[in-house]
Amino acid sequence: MTDLPDFTIEELEELTRIDLGLFGNEEAVDLGLSAVEVITERELNLSVDVVVRDDLAFRARLGSTGPDNDPWLQGKAAVARHFEEPSLLVRRRLEASGQSVQDFGLNPDVYRAHGGSIPLRAGGLVIGTITVSGEPDVVDHEVAAEALRRFLDR
């Protein structure tokens, strides 16, 4: 992979306006399988989690990923849940303002402001996350966003 994807703030903010309506474990599995499809097509080394209401509904580890990715999956998801925005958008906002998660009273070992997690909304509320980890964080984000797009297109 030579060129890393680049995202505008507007593109990242668009993801905060998606409302999935009814979304439970079956939908979480479908979303996770969409991510696996993207990961496989692109021959990437990624782990993916889909969490619904604090319950891990889907996990897959592809390529060279494994338990070492878990703290990243959990940390990125914690950021997406706390700020209710994609973790890459949070990272960009923090960088632009010269701040870190510590400035919000958050532990950087628990809250990892790196791209790859997108909050899932239903009825206007954040009810879960899709999180991807294993490649550069902009690639992680791109895969999560593409999986969400494919899920919505079905």
Rank of each mutant, 00 (worst) to 15 (best):
M1C: 13
T2M: 11
T2G: 11
L4K: 14
P5T: 03
D6S: 13
D6K: 15
D6Y: 09
F7S: 06
F7V: 11
I9P: 00
E11V: 00
L12T: 00
L12R: 01
E13D: 09
E14C: 07
R17T: 12
L20F: 14
F23W: 07
N25M: 04
E26P: 00
E26L: 10
E26H: 06
A28C: 04
V29W: 01
L31W: 01
G32V: 09
V38I: 15
I39D: 11
T40Y: 01
R42Y: 02
E43S: 15
E43Q: 15
L44N: 10
N45A: 14
N45Q: 13
N45L: 09
L46S: 14
L46H: 12
S47L: 10
S47V: 11
D49K: 05
V51H: 01
R53H: 08
F58I: 09
F58M: 05
R61L: 04
G63P: 07
S64E: 15
T65R: 10
P67Q: 01
D68H: 13
W72E: 08
W72R: 03
L73Y: 08
L73R: 07
Q74T: 13
V79P: 06
E84T: 12
E84I: 02
E85K: 15
L88V: 09
V90E: 09
R91V: 05
L94Q: 05
Q102S: 15
G105N: 05
G105I: 05
P108Q: 06
P108S: 08
P108H: 05
P108C: 07
D109M: 10
Y111I: 02
R112Y: 02
R112I: 15
A113M: 00
H114L: 15
G116D: 08
G116T: 04
S117P: 01
S117N: 06
I118P: 06
P119H: 09
L120V: 03
L120I: 03
L120Y: 00
R121G: 03
L125H: 02
V126E: 04
I127T: 02
S133F: 01
G134R: 11
G134V: 11
E135K: 03
E135V: 10
V139L: 06
V139Y: 02
D140V: 04
H141G: 06
E142W: 09
E142Y: 01
V143S: 10
A145V: 04
A145T: 01
A145Q: 14
A147W: 02
A147S: 13
L148W: 02
L148P: 04
R149M: 11
R149K: 14
L152E: 03
D153P: 01
D153H: 10
